[in-house]
Design a protein around this nucleic acid. Structure first.
Lengths: 162, 162
DNA sequence: CTATATGCAAAACGTTTGCATCCCT
DNA sequence: AGGGATGCAAACGTTTTGCATATAG
């Protein structure tokens, strides 16, 4: 979904809920759906800085409130990955993916595996559950260039338990 | 592992590290390994209150520090489940399990599924990863008595994204 | 015009840390 | 005796909230 499409969808959702379309909401949505963030799982702080650079007057709280709003509208999903900050990613309805986090460089990969999801559903059923959603994060070491070099030298900066 | 066994193991680990056995560490470990907590995934706050009820003088920071210590000694594992509080569970070496959280009553079940873990490893390998650890939480609805009744009546108190 | 949204600052939250004191070893 | 451990309170980083003001519908 492009930024423009996202803004349109947001406006439709706002109208449905009787809420207002504002310049801030449009701007934050546009920044969030910017191609540079598509794989980036930005934190609110990151988004705030990006937004601020385009409109100095936007406040912190507005970014927090707008991201919550995007979640409610189904346009974003919050994720708790490797640190204690909430990260957001654009949501494409019907699609689901999980995460692979590199313990050395912190890089985040995405994957989707229907076989695993089927087994999750079966396991849940064994306990009398119906799965509504799930979170799965695998922690390991990636083979990207900066990371391989770093792996030998410095200690892991990522705490998987955090 | 019983509380007594845990304390013994802790003392061995402390000695190995040149650290000190104290009444507080023993008490916190004993409380944490109390049968009432075995399935409970207590937060630091819960543990603190339990500990405090047995020894009024124990401080908050000591519970935090001791839980971190237990993690280092391999006696506890921190978990981020459905809220923003770190929960701890007793660790039995070599064993791993994942969690199933009821969206209605917040009850936490545990499960283990080697088939899923094998698929996770394969998926990671596909991306050039070796999995060091993983977190998997399934959110759904359980069939316990209070929960089934509640499901129809009140909204879900658990936020899976938190 | 009115309800909603905003920006700011202050509060809240879970957690960590500095420091004087205490107490295992 | 001495280094680690404790309790307290203050600091921390992230997120939420109260409130006066601004603005969309």
């Amino acid at each position: 979904m492009t930024g423009e499409q996202a803004i349109e969808e947001l406006e439709r959702a706002l109208q449905r809920k009787g809420l207002k379309t504002t310049a801030q909401r449009r701007l934050i949505t546009e920044v969030f759906f910017d191609p540079q963030f598509r794989q980036d799982h930005p934190t609110v702080d990151t988004l705030y800085r990006q937004v601020k650079s385009r409109d100095q007057s936007v406040g912190f709280a507005t970014v927090y409130r707008t991201m919550k709003l995007l979640v409610e509208c189904g346009l974003a999903s919050p994720r708790q990955l490797h640190d204690n900050q909430t990260r957001y990613e654009p949501e494409s309805p019907g699609e689901h993916h999980d995460h692979l986090v590199c313990l050395d460089c912190g890089h985040i990969f995405e994957f989707e595996n229907e076989e695993i999801e089927a087994l999750q559903a079966r396991e849940a059923a064994r306990h009398g559950f119906v799965v509504a959603e799930h979170r799965m994060v695998l922690y390991g070491r990636c083979q990207r260039d900066p990371c391989e070099r770093r792996a030998a030298a410095t200690p892991a900066p990522v705490d998987p338990s955090a």
